[in-house]
Design a protein around this nucleic acid. Structure first.
Lengths: 355, 355
DNA sequence: TTGAAAGCGCTAACAC
DNA sequence: GTGTTAGCGCTTTCAA
């Protein structure tokens, strides 16, 4: 038996000896079917291996308790955290989550977006690719939509870390831990990096008399460039050498630590080093890195909230800007001397807890 | 304008002043439409913000160049690798990939499976949850289906690391590096762990006269239990103390290294330690860990191959068992003394390359 | 409670 | 090439 390609609702109805409509009710409004009939229908469905054709369901007007999440990749720390946060929160509210990765290819991202829209997904979450001055599509979306990990002031829904506050936080950590000369390294080639730098500059100039410089060099996400920068800074004569390095990303920071040590200096003994983006993937170096607590999970959670809010609220007459900012927290560890660097695997850097 | 809920193909046809069928052709068989008409249609579609209703498309008989991937979670090293491998391979063959995580909940996994089947997904890939004696569902699938990270001999398609060979590989590494007394630690509570142990036992007994014992204690994936075991083994009197520890998982191994060091012994100086499952998430300890090269990416790739093969081949009359085994490779690093443990962030443990 | 019938938006086959 | 039409499988009225 069952060498047939497709089992339809009609087959189940025939098998159970009831009308088609009753089978539909059995699945969608079980309370409207007499229990005994319901049992017979379920049993018939099982025997036949019936799985409803979702396309037909949706077409006929069903709602889909499913969100779509479009990520540029799945190997970057934040994306993974977003996926897990969004998944947990969606589940909590009775929704499922489908994740797609677009490999930073706009064309592919569009295709997934159209697919999700075209299958009556309840909402779409999207982390835009890491490009400077990214802008959301002009067309107002036809279904709930929110963008993650991006600060933006055009109409739409956006969730991101408060990168300005994040910059301030790290700057304060630097001068409170006694830094005299701070070097901020990394090219601010993304809006969020620019905001971090602004936050740092603001805190340094208004709250301290600590000297600082911005070394705008190297790719924003290259451990190799970090190593190079770290070494060069460490090799400066002692009177111009920074005693604290803030790297705009953790990857850069990890590289910088290696660079400083390659130049024969100690971290945090001679130079303290901090990262900026709570990226557990970069936490594999010999010194546990001070950085921001990973925030992606929270971004994912809040994104789902935004979606649910859009579903429940009246649609807006005038599209407005909804920017939600998540407050960052510092993770003070050995690389800035705020925590012992012991011999054991530091439980703080069991990264699996952060993914 | 466009305050309308849905834009249909009819709207586009009217807007472009052509018949409905031409719009359909414009999207699905552009070559069947006069270029000038095509341009007019595309422009109208754009202006209206038209996105085809995928449900209707599928219902009407379209094929979906999309695979579904169901994972127990996204925080375990292998799952992430699978996702990336499957994604890359799918893309290469012109398919998309939708990823869902079931949180080890069979019920939810079923729901995603039914969803994928019900949306005419071209095929489904599934990594079963980590339970002993897992078995695939009895119903022969109606669409291409393959299971990843599992060795199984019932009818169906399965892809996994060759865990027996993996065990042999590690055992050989141990006795070739001069081990006299080996302790294998971890409870073999999953089929794949059992196979690893069998492989080790086989290699030890047939190829060496090295003494070995299996310490079946602790959860299979707990760094804490690893620490405990490592410490206890290190605290044994020198004549019964192992000089080589093979942990059944990397998480256990990382813990064990800390345990050995906590007991005042050195790794690899006094005791060498190796892991077993190429899980980059566990590579955060102070000593780079010898283990198997991460294999998940390859599992994902091969899984997609299996799916494509099923799509292209004739359906089988008699369902057969197709078990594909991926050959494991050793990643020899400092924890077994096969590689220098230098001061810098070891490029080998830049885990992002393995995810 | 149940059964019959009207579409949902689209594709493909057909006639023009 | 272009336009017309018959379903795809299901949900949801509406009568019975």
């Amino acid at each position: 038996m069952s060498r047939q390609t497709t089992v339809t609702i009609t087959d189940v109805a025939r098998e159970a000896g009831v009308a088609l409509g009753s089978v539909s009710n059995a699945f969608n409004h079980p309370d409207k079917v007499r229990p005994e009939t319901l049992a017979r229908i379920r049993e018939a469905a099982d025997r036949l291996g019936y799985a409803p054709n979702q396309s037909a369901r949706m077409l006929a007007g069903g709602k889909n308790r499913l969100f779509g999440l479009i990520l540029p990749s799945l190997d970057h720390g934040v994306s993974l955290q977003i996926a897990n946060g969004a998944n947990a929160e969606a589940r909590k509210h009775g929704y499922g989550l489908l994740i797609a990765t677009a490999q930073t290819d706009e064309e592919i991202a569009h295709r997934y977006r159209d697919y999700f829209m075209g299958t009556q997904t309840a909402g779409i979450l999207m982390q835009p690719p890491a490009v400077l001055n990214w802008q959301p599509p002009a067309h107002p979306p036809r279904i709930p939509l929110a963008f993650l990990d991006i600060q933006c002031d055009v109409p739409g829904h956006f969730v991101a870390a408060d990168n300005f506050a994040l910059g301030e936080l790290l700057a304060r950590h630097a001068f409170k831990s006694g830094a005299q000369r701070v070097a901020i390294i990394g090219k601010p080639s993304l809006n969020r990096l620019v905001l971090r730098v602004k936050g740092m500059e603001h805190a340094f100039t208004t709250e301290s008399d600590c000297a600082f410089e911005v070394v705008e060099e190297g790719a924003w996400n290259s451990a190799h460039d970090g190593l190079d920068l770290g070494r060069r800074l460490a090799e400066r004569p002692e009177d111009t050498r920074p005693d604290f390095i803030i790297a705009l990303t953790d990857t850069l920071a990890t590289g910088a630590i290696s660079g400083v040590r390659a130049a024969g200096l100690r971290v945090p003994g001679d130079i303290r080093v901090a990262g900026c983006d709570g990226n557990p993937l970069a936490w594999t170096g010999p010194v546990p890195l001070t950085t921001i607590a990973p925030i992606g999970y929270e971004l994912g959670r809040r994104g789902v909230h935004q979606l649910i809010a859009q579903i429940e609220e009246e649609p807006e007459h005038e599209p407005e800007n909804h920017q939600e900012l998540v407050r960052p927290f510092l993770l003070a560890r050995a690389s800035t001397g705020m925590n012992r660097s012991d011999d054991f695997a530091d439980p703080d850097i069991d990264i699996s807890g952060y993914l």
